[in-house]
């Protein structure tokens, strides 16, 4: 199968599945570092809402959203891979190897899944800083 046989939507899904996890992780890290550095320095860390720091809520929100994004990317990539792994096509005669797209989809499953784990791990510190920086 060549790239041109795929529809544009599937192409976009493929790239989302491949890079979505990484983008989500980037978003979480940049947001978390900016929110915490700014929040703690500017005294926002002293403002509490519902017993927790305001910035803690923000951090929890960002982390959940980004984890969800990575999870969606993983699922999208997994579904594409499930669909493509079998159609060998003329470009992939050596049957152990899938087409480029199937390969990228597989890479997307692993990468986005790994990023999902990293996002979760990166959220662990939040639990230890609920009330102060």
């Amino acid at each position: 199968m060549t790239a041109h046989d795929r529809t544009g939507i599937e192409q976009r899904r493929l790239w989302f599945g491949l890079l979505g996890g990484g983008i989500a992780w980037t978003g979480q890290l940049i947001a978390a570092s900016f929110i915490s550095e700014w929040g703690c320095f500017s005294g926002l860390g002293d403002r509490h809402v519902g017993g927790l720091m305001m910035i803690t809520w923000l951090l929890i929100g960002v982390s959940l959203a980004m984890a969800a994004l990575a999870a969606v990317a993983t699922v999208v990539a997994a579904r594409l891979h499930a669909r493509w792994r079998t159609d060998g096509g003329p470009g992939s005669v050596d049957s152990p190897y899938d087409s480029s797209e199937a390969f990228l989809a597989k890479a997307g499953v692993i990468a986005s899944g790994l990023f999902l784990f990293i996002i979760v791990a990166q959220s662990i510190p939040i639990v230890f800083f609920l009330r102060g920086c």
């Binding site: 791990a121 662990i124 230890f128």
Partner: peptide, 17 residues
Amino acid sequence: PALILTVILVLSVKAQV
């Protein structure tokens, strides 16, 4: 590694606090 690193992460943050 993920398991070991998670343990290290928790200990690190606890020590930080």
